[in-house]
């Protein structure tokens, strides 16, 4: 097992609060919401497991279990159980990364008998290949044909969220605001301005 502190990216003498924050930050990054239906799902699950273990290890060994143990969300595999359908082998193909085979199978189904699931699977294969625009179209069709289906809805939401730069804005926290430096330089500037006009704001300089 890797050094749990390294996994969370904190130093060994970090406070419990810092560790919890680091954990929460990483958990949000690897959250399955960001990856649902994508090709990286398995890796993100693995990562999630890794940070879960690291977090547990640190907290247990520090003996601060009283702190409530943090707000870990169980990374239970959201395997959508689909009832038996003709598409199960296509799902299997997509899952194992054989997209060309999946497309061939899907294209063989005549246009008039294509269901919402067909559009969803077509979209998933395209999404995993990186054909994002076609995938969005197909997810959209799937959703409009079967508006109640959560699986289709999640895939579409994921794409729509990304379109407005969702992942980028939530992961990148810029500290904007007024720092100590800003206040000092502001004061010095104000002093200079006052002196230009004959007055003085900070008498000592």
């Amino acid at each position: 097992m890797r050094n749990p502190y390294e996994v969370l990216g904190v130093s060994e003498n970090a406070s419990d609060e810092e560790i919890r924050r680091a954990y929460r930050e990483l958990a949000r990054k690897y959250s399955s919401d960001n990856f649902s239906g994508g090709p990286l799902t398995d890796i993100s699950h693995k990562k999630m497991k890794e940070i879960d273990e690291a977090y547990d290890y640190i907290i247990l060994n520090r003996g601060s279990r009283s702190g409530g143990g943090g707000s870990r969300q169980g990374s239970s595999n959201n395997q959508y159980t689909s009832s038996f359908s003709d598409y199960s082998d296509i799902r299997e193909k997509i899952k194992s990364g054989r997209y060309d085979d999946a497309h061939t199978l899907l294209d063989g189904i005549p246009k008039q008998s294509r269901t919402a699931e067909w559009y969803y699977l077509k979209g998933s294969a395209q999404y995993r290949q990186g054909w994002l625009e076609e995938a969005a179209k197909n997810f959209n069709t799937a959703c409009s044909m079967d508006p109640g289906n959560e699986e289709y809805r999640a895939a579409l939401n994921n794409i729509n969220n990304s379109r407005s730069g969702g992942y980028r804005t939530t992961s990148q926290q810029t500290n904007k605001g007024c720092s100590g430096c800003d206040i000092c330089s502001g004061l010095i500037c104000a002093d200079c301005c006052c002196e230009c006009l004959g007055g003085d704001l900070i008498p000592c300089c």
């Binding site: 690897y30 990286l40 990562k47 980028r168």
Partner: peptide, 17 residues
């Protein structure tokens, strides 16, 4: 912009992992 954003976002997900 939407098309590009979507591409960048997907790319960032891979990058973070």
């Amino acid at each position: 912009t939407g098309v590009l954003n979507l591409t960048v976002d997907e790319c960032l997900k891979a990058f973070e992992l």
